[in-house]
């Protein structure tokens, strides 16, 4: 299967600043790719190059079999792009805004009305579609943006920080929608974000950018396993802790260390031992309040690369 997106040693300089530095990226059809990195790590610049909206200093890009630098229109026909701070014409209703996009994509009038209803239904904006877009909240604008992108029935959707400025519930809802759209319609999603935690669960693969370079790439579980410091940490809270409980927990094969702080117990080991832990708790007849893995190592990755002082432009 030919990759949907492929870049080789893609580089973009702004004066002496290297916004993107020798980026090699590959993305398969139907894949959800999380493109992560702090602000100013070159994510947006990469996206602009994928769309042919800015020229690379060197290196090559291919999107859906076209070179976006030479033939941007062919790329844009198959790729939907939701910019970072998407806006709509405030005087027009949400529906009219979408009809305009449909028109720009050369969708015939009769088709367009039908399609607009369909995407509005997907993002649950049928009611609000009658109101001027100027009255929309940030969350509604993002949803309308997603609808806008889906109109052209793209092969690939590029979302530039779609969760920015949304409340937690809005983020969950939007990510759920993106996941659904990717699975149901087989649309590949290129999702740029600096919020690893929110995004990781819907991504097949993630790539982490730092200062214009890809520093880590792979599936979320690959990345977790790859860390030497790695392994799992299980967090347990019980109603009443006892020495025999701690002792029993320490005897689980994969467990290296058990750390108890009154009723809150942290168990670290080489693999996920939640199943054994729950059996032990059950056997000991202790009431369990909470049991979860804290996935420590991924957080470490996050901290290592994301908390560097960001400089340059996004």
């Amino acid at each position: 299967m030919a990759p949907l997106v492929e870049t080789s040693s893609l580089t973009k300089h702004y004066g002496s600043i290297k916004a993107v530095d020798g980026l090699n990226l590959k993305m398969n059809p139907g894949e959800v790719y999380g493109f992560l990195g702090p602000n100013g790590s070159g994510k947006s610049t990469t996206i602009l190059m994928l769309l042919g909206m800015t020229e690379p200093t060197s290196g090559t890009v291919s999107v859906a079999g076209h070179d976006p630098t030479r033939d941007p229109t062919a790329v844009k026909r198959q790729v939907g792009y939701l910019p970072e701070a998407v806006g709509f014409y405030p005087d027009l209703t949400g529906r009219r805004n979408l009809l305009y996009t449909a028109e720009l994509n050369g969708i015939s009038k009769s088709d367009a009305e039908h399609k607009v209803e369909e995407v509005l239904h997907m993002v649950q904006l049928e009611e609000a579609g009658h109101r001027p877009a100027g009255q929309y909240s940030r969350g509604m604008r993002q949803r309308l943006g997603l609808a806008d992108v889906l109109l052209k029935e793209p092969k690939l959707v590029i979302l530039d920080d779609p969760t920015l400025g949304l409340d937690p519930a809005g983020i969950q809802w939007l990510l759920g929608l993106i996941e659904e759209m990717a699975k149901q319609k087989g649309i590949a999603v290129f999702l740029s974000s600096h919020q690893l935690h929110e995004v990781q669960r819907i991504c097949d693969r993630v790539g982490i950018m730092s200062r214009g370079k890809m520093v880590l790439e792979g599936t979320v579980s690959d990345l977790t396993a790859a860390q030497e410091s790695g392994g799992y940490e299980v967090y347990l809270e019980v109603e009443k802790s006892s020495k025999s409980l701690i002792g029993a927990l320490s005897e689980i094969k994969s467990v290296k260390n058990v750390n108890a702080n009154k009723t809150k117990i942290t168990i670290s080991g080489t693999e996920d031992c939640r199943h054994q832990v729950s059996t032990i708790v059950f056997e000991q007849k202790v009431r369990m309040l909470e049991l979860r893995t804290s996935n420590r190592s991924l957080e470490e990755i996050y901290l290592r690369y994301f908390q560097e002082p960001a400089d340059g432009e996004g």
Binding site: P83, A85, V86, Y89, T101, L104
Partner: peptide
């Protein structure tokens, strides 16, 4: 308005 980037990403 933030519509320019969207407009220019149309074919």
């Amino acid at each position: 308005q933030g519509t320019l980037a969207k407009l220019l990403s149309q074919p």
